[in-house]
């Protein structure tokens, strides 16, 4: 397979890619700056949304160029699904931990 550089992508796809990049950047900014843990968890989710969006766009790349492929790339779709499962479970776990952290900090025997 020959290398597909960015210039071969249609303007529409480029727009999506730019959006994905923005999402990623916002997420990274939020993760590094955000003082609250909940915000950082959400920032992580925004980052993953950006990455999944990039992957979705890449899956449609062949179609937009009118090349031989008749359907979007199934491998990427499979990857996104797996990634989503991982992201959801990780977020749930992080939220659960955060909940426990709040509980221990609120409990009376905890000395600040």
């Amino acid at each position: 397979m020959t290398e597909l550089s960015m210039t071969e992508l249609s303007p529409q796809l480029l727009l999506y890619i730019a959006t994905a990049a923005c999402l990623f950047a916002i997420g990274v900014y939020g993760f590094i700056v955000g003082p609250q843990t909940l915000r950082r968890i959400l920032a992580l989710n925004i980052i993953s949304a950006g990455i999944f969006m990039l992957m979705v766009v890449l899956a449609y790349r062949g179609l937009a160029n009118g090349q031989a492929r008749a359907s979007p790339d199934p491998v990427l779709h499979a990857l996104i699904l797996t990634g989503l499962v991982v992201a959801v479970s990780a977020t749930a776990f992080a939220l659960a931990l955060l909940g426990r952290l709040k509980q221990t900090q609120a409990s009376p025997e905890h000395q600040p």
Binding site: E3, L4, L54, L58, D73, L79
Partner: peptide
């Protein structure tokens, strides 16, 4: 996630994992 983004970029460029 950083790693995953890199993987997505590589797959976008070469189409193999």
């Amino acid at each position: 996630l950083c790693y995953l983004l890199g993987v997505a970029m590589l797959y976008g460029a070469y189409g193999v994992l």
